[in-house]
């Protein structure tokens, strides 16, 4: 079988010091993205467990699978969860969800929890979209844009280059710095045109690392332009799959002259985490607590 250079490592995590049985509100969030899906379970608003898996061709099945994975190494079961919110591209296809909320709202809420209330600007680079969100100290969205029309600046753009250059996706960040001097960025924004530009550079004898550096900085530049539309304000956090690509993140930081906050958990869970927080708030509302 042909090597799949785009394939990224899946993950799951359980807290070592929370006993769900003592919890009052158990809430969950499931983010079914176009490429990856995540499930997060909170016990009284504290992170209990999560998982991050590749989305299959069937959204309801992927939602079920990622939830099963999150609960896998715990003795918690789905029936014990009080409220579940679905989010992401497949949010209306989560069979066991009580409600669907957009990934914009969920990402802001999740990042507010993951990175703290000082976060004002969130960049989420997903598999097939790119979101720029500005939020207040409560994690409420104040300004946003989402680009899911064009592949440039999304994980898909990087996947195209992983395949073209035969570099595994998780090594792309590191390799993009193996250049003596930062090359001029690829001039085309469009991934199709950027790819043919890259083929031309390879024919000219450019090493793959140099081509990768040129593409990474073009991608960073494009994302910065999107961010500037919603105005960048400190603190700044990067979530989503490409947050794991230091080649893009470091170049964004240097162009913005702002450092992104260090993530403490898998950067891909922000959406599902926000959904779980909304689920908790909805239970509280139901119980007349807020």
């Amino acid at each position: 079988m042909e090597k799949e250079y785009w394939r990224w490592p899946e993950s799951r995590w359980t807290s070592s010091d929370i006993d769900w049985k003592t919890g009052d509100i158990i809430s969950a969030g499931v983010d079914v993205g176009s490429v990856s899906s995540q499930a997060v379970v909170l016990v009284d608003g504290e992170l209990f467990c999560y998982s991050n898996y590749r989305t299959g061709s069937d959204s309801p099945e992927s939602a079920q699978k990622v939830m099963d994975k999150a609960l896998e190494e715990t003795d918690l079961t789905l029936e014990k969860i009080h409220h579940t919110v679905g989010t992401g591209y497949g949010r209306v296809n989560v069979p066991f969800a009580n409600r669907a909320i957009t990934e914009i709202a969920c990402h802001a809420r999740g990042a507010n929890f993951m990175y703290g209330p000082s976060v004002r600007t969130i960049l989420d680079m997903g598999g097939q979209d790119c979101k720029a969100i500005h939020c207040d100290e409560k994690g409420k969205v104040t300004n946003f844009l989402m680009n899911d029309k064009c592949a440039a600046g999304t994980g898909r753009g990087m996947e195209v280059f992983a395949d073209l250059l035969s570099i595994p996706i998780e090594e792309m960040g590191k390799l993009s710095f193996k250049v003596e001097k930062e090359p001029e960025p690829v001039s085309s924004t469009c991934v199709i045109f950027a790819k043919s530009e890259a083929v031309g550079l390879l024919r000219k004898g450019w090493p793959k690392e140099k081509v990768l550096a040129a593409y990474s900085s073009a991608m960073a530049h494009r994302v910065v332009e999107l961010l500037e539309r919603i105005k960048v304000e400190k603190d700044f956090a990067v979530t989503g799959g490409i947050a794991k690509n230091e080649g893009v993140v470091k170049r964004i930081e240097s162009e913005l002259k702002i450092e992104a906050l260090e993530p403490q958990h898998d950067t891909q869970i922000a959406g599902a985490l926000g959904a779980a927080l909304f689920a908790k708030a909805l239970v509280e509302k139901e119980r007349g607590l807020r």
Partner: peptide, 13 residues
């Protein structure tokens, strides 16, 4: 899909 890259995968599906 309104993007050639995304349309490629749409065509495949």
């Amino acid at each position: 899909a309104q993007c050639a890259v995304f349309a490629e995968s749409e065509v495949v599906s």
